[in-house]
Design a protein around this nucleic acid. Structure first.
Length: 230
DNA sequence: GCGACAG
DNA sequence: ATCTTGTCGC
């Protein structure tokens, strides 16, 4: 339930230090189901404003499997780390943790916009957040970071394992016919099979599952501050 | 040296 | 991620 305190500079590290931290934290990731009955599921996404100088995190909590909106929170924070493929969590996790701290309903599972273990060092942002918060998480990325996969059948629900060598690190999942597949991977405490099942059960006619679609929308609409919203 | 490269 | 209008297709 509680959230680890985030020391002001806990995430203020150099890219080299960030890689070292990932090498140390990768082993803490739990790749099997270690969660109870799922009654609420959340989604988190990050948007930017002021020419990329400020990050905005949106977290949306929904009932499961009903998918009725239960709570939504926003957090804003100056960006302190550049975008470097493979080090996304050091750029986006700080503002996400701030948003999660404002949540009064702790979700049973969290869907994250990005990779879980389908990452060079098996610690994408979904896994990093999961371990940090000891929360079951699933990585749902709109594009591939690493790994290869066979062509995915056109039907909604079809998927192909994502491989890096002999290791299955995730799945290319067609959430809807006619759209590019999304990349689902274990975040923390959720098996790949369960991750795929949860994503499909949260999908309602769009490429992205509802928690992420709503979080993305919320992170894009700002009343005051950056743009006008859309 | 030449690509690839979550958001 | 973000800058941005109209436009092609189901």
């Amino acid at each position: 339930m509680p959230l680890p305190h985030v020391p002001p500079h806990a995430w203020e590290v150099s890219p080299e230090e960030a890689v070292a931290i990932q090498m140390q934290w990768r082993e803490r990731v739990i790749r099997v189901d270690c969660l109870g009955e799922v009654r609420t599921i959340a989604g988190v996404d990050v948007g930017f404003e002021d020419e990329g100088r400020v990050a905005r995190a949106a977290v949306v909590v929904l009932d499961f499997p009903g998918l009725v909106m239960r709570e939504q929170v926003l957090a804003r924070r100056p960006v302190t780390f550049p975008y470097v493929p493979g080090l996304l969590s050091f750029r986006e996790a700080p503002v996400i943790l701030e948003a999660l701290a404002r949540l009064r309903l702790w979700p049973d599972v969290l869907l994250v916009d990005g990779q879980g273990i389908a990452h060079p060092r098996r610690l994408g942002i979904a896994s990093h957040l999961g371990v940090w918060c000891d929360l079951p998480t699933v990585g749902v990325a709109k594009s591939r970071l690493v790994g290869q996969h066979a062509p995915v059948a056109e039907a909604a629900g079809a998927w192909q394992p994502l491989y890096e060598g002999d290791e299955v690190i995730g799945a290319a999942l067609r959430t809807r016919a006619g759209v590019r597949p999304v990349y689902v991977s274990i975040g923390h405490r959720v098996s790949l099979e369960t991750a795929i099942d949860l994503v499909m059960r949260c999908t309602r006619g769009y490429r992205l599952p509802e928690p992420l679609r709503l979080a993305h929308h919320l992170a894009s609409v700002v009343e005051k501050g950056g743009k006008e919203g859309r």
